[in-house]
Design a protein around this nucleic acid. Sequence first.
DNA 1: AGACCGACTTAGAATATCGCTC
DNA 2: GAGCGATATTCTAAGTCGGTCT
Length: 742
Amino acid sequence: MGGEKDAEGDGKTKHKATKLKKLSNHESAGAGGDTLKNSAKSNKSTEKGDGNSHKVKKLKTETVESPNKPSKFVKQEDDDFTVKKKGLKRKRIKDESAEDLFETTATPTSKNKKKQHTKEDESDREAKKKKSREKKEKTVKKEEGEHPVSKKTKRTKDEVEEAKQRKIKKKEEEEQNRWRWWEEEKYEDGVKWKFLEHKGPYFPPEYQPLPDNVHFYYDGKKVKLSLAAEEVALFFAQMLDHEYTTKKVFRENFFKDWRKEMTQEERVLIKDLDKCDFGELHAMHKAKVEAKKSMTKDEKQALKEANEKIVEEFGYCLLDHHRERIGNFKIEPPGLFRGRGEHPKQGMLKKRIQPEDIIINCGKESKVPVAPAGHSWKEVRHDNTVTWLASWTENIQGLIKYIMLNANSKLKGEKDWEKYEVARKLKSHVDDIRNQYLSDLKSKEMGVRQRAVALYFIDKLALRAGNEKEEGETADTVGCCSLRVEHITLHEQLDGSECVVEFDFLGKDSIRYYNKVPVIKKVFKNLKLFLERKQPGDELFDRLNTSMLNKHLSSLMPGLTAKVFRTYNASITLQQQLKELTNQSESVAEKLLSYNRANRAVAVLCNHQRAPPKTFEQSMANLQAKIDARKEQLALAKTELKQAKKEAKAKGSDHKLQTLVERKKAAVRRCEEQLLKMEVQATDREENKQIALGTSKLNYLDPRISVAWCKNMGVPIEKIYNKTQRDKFAWAIDMTEADFEF
DNA sequence: AGACCGACTTAGAATATCGCTC
DNA sequence: GAGCGATATTCTAAGTCGGTCT
C-alpha cells in the first residue's frame, strides 16, 4: 500500500487500506498468543499480530504559512523557518526504507491533500467556518421555535442563547487558530524548536506574617516566632486536619526541618512538637478558607479576572510561529513534602524557590525573561534539544523540576502520537515476541529465563518495568523487575485453577496490586526455581534489571521498551471491548455505558485505582434509600395486585376489575424495571468506586480508537472527551476516519 | 557494569467550577 | 441562591528510560 493516495475529495487520510491489510494478516497469524489466554483479571487480548508494516510514509510540507499572524518576536526568525520548512508539507511517499520509526508506521496525517497550505487553505477554512456557523445558527433557531416561553423566562433565555452563541463563536475562533502541527514535517533529530520565548515562571506570593491577634503557644505560653519559623509553623497548622500530621515519620521530619528554620533562642525553647499549640493558626487558616468560599459574586469575579491576567501574561510562550499554553508556569509554593505511601521523607520542608535557583531556557534570538525585581536567574541557556522553559532542583530528593508546555501543545502532542505509533507497531511484532519469550522460558541461561518470565508478566498483566530505587529515599514500591520474594505466592492449586500466582505488592504511588493469576506451567516452574534458596527481601529476578530488559526489547523492535506493552495492551483491549460491547442499534446512553465498561476493563488491567470519593458512602446511601423506597413501593404494588386479583376472582368476570388487575400488573412491572435499573446503577458505581478511568483515557488509549468509534456509532465526541481532552487529542480528532484500526 | 543524572510521561489527590435541586 | 454532588482542572509526586561518567 506504499504510496496509496487519498482518493477522497475532503482531503482526509483514509485508513481503509491499512485495515484491509491488517485483517488479511490476521488470518495468517501465528499461534503464539494462545498460551496467554485466561487472564484472571481481564479479558485482555491475545490479539494475533498481523505483520502489517504500516507503509504510509513521510508526508511533506510544501508551504508553511502559519494560520496565526506572525508575531514580532518571530519575525527575525522567519528566514530560518521558511528555509527549513519550504517544501516540507507531509505527504505520502513510496520509499519503504525510511529509517525513522515514526515514519515507517502509518503516519496518518490528514488533510494532506492540501499541499497548498497558504491561500487555498485559508479560503477553504473560511468557507468551512461559515458553513458550520450557519449550521449552528439553524439549530439554535429551531430550538427557539420549538419552545415558546413566557416573557419573563424568555429574556433570560435570550441571554443564555447569546452566551451560547458567544461560546460557539469563541470555540470556532479557537479551532481556527489552532496550530495544525500534525500537518507539518517534523524537525531533524533532536531539535525540538527553533524559536522559544516566554516570560519566565510565575512566583508564589511572599509570606504574609500572622496578624497580631493570632498566636502560637508552646507549653501553654504565647511565643512570638521569627518570620521564617512562623511560616513553617503555618504550613503544619494548615495541614492539621490531614492524616499526615498524625504520622510519626511526618511529624519527626517536619519538626527536624522546622527547627532548622528557627533562631537559636527558638531552638532552645521549642524541643517537643507535642507541646506546640497551633490551634489559633489552624483556626485562622480555616477562617480564611471559609471567607474565600463566602465571597460575593463580584469578589469572586474580580479574583477570577486577576487570575486570568496572570495566565495571560505568564501562561503562554511563543514556540516557533505559535502561541502555546504552558502546563505549569507557576513555581511550586513552599510547604511540607507530601510523599505518597510510607514515604521516609514525608513532612520535610519544601523550600521556597528563588529566581536564583532557576535555569531559564529560551531561544537565542528571543527576549530573555526578566527576573523579579532585585533578583537574577541562576542561568540562562538556549538549548533547543529539550522542551522545558525553566528548571530548578528541588531540595527534598535533589530532583530536577521543569516548566513545560501543556498537553495540547505541539511538543507534547507529537510525542503522544509517536507513542501510539510505536504501540501500533508492536501489534505486528507481538506474535514473534511472544513466541520468543515463551521459548526463552526453557533457556539454559538463568538470566534469559528470568527475562522471559518478566516479559510474560509485563505482557499479560501490564506490569510496569520496575526500576531499582534507592532504599530509604522513597516509599518501598516495586514494578516487575524489582519484585521481591515476599510479593508473590505460588499455589499449585487455587480456586479450581492450577499454577496460580498470587501477587501482592505496592506499585507506583503506593497503589496496591493484588491479583491471582493462573499461569502456564513453564512460568510456574521457573518461578519455583527463582525462589529456591531465597528469603523474603531477596529479589525475584536477581539476574535481571530494566536496562537489560529494555536493551533486549529494543533489539526485537526499534523503539520497543517495557512500557510500550502497557500502551499496546491497553489500546488493543479498548478496541476489542468496544467491538464486543457496543451495538449500532443501541441508544447513545447505552453506547456510552458500553464505552465506559470498555474503558473500565483497561483501567482494571492497568490497575488504576483511586481512593473512594469522600462523598461516596453518602451518595451510595442516598441511592440505597431510593432503592429501598422503590422496594417498598413494589411490595405495596404487589399486595394491591393480589387484592385486585382476589376481588376479580370473587366477582367473576367483571370487566372493570379485569382492567384494574392489568393496571396493577403493569405498575408492578414498571416498579421492578426501575428497581433493576437503580440496582444496576448502584453496582456500576460500586464497581467504579476504586477505579480511576481518567488515567488510561489520557495516557494509554489511542484516541483514534475512540474517535473512530464515535464516528461509527454516531456518538458526539463531546460525550467521550471533555474540552481539555479534546484539545489534547485535537490531532486524532482531526485526522481519524471511522475505519481507523489500531 | 553500575551509579547517577536529565528529561520526559504517568499518576492520584486536592481544589475549583459546574450544574442541578430544593 | 444556597447547597450539594459530579466533573474538570490543577498540582506535583513518582515513575520510565536513555545517556554519560567512572
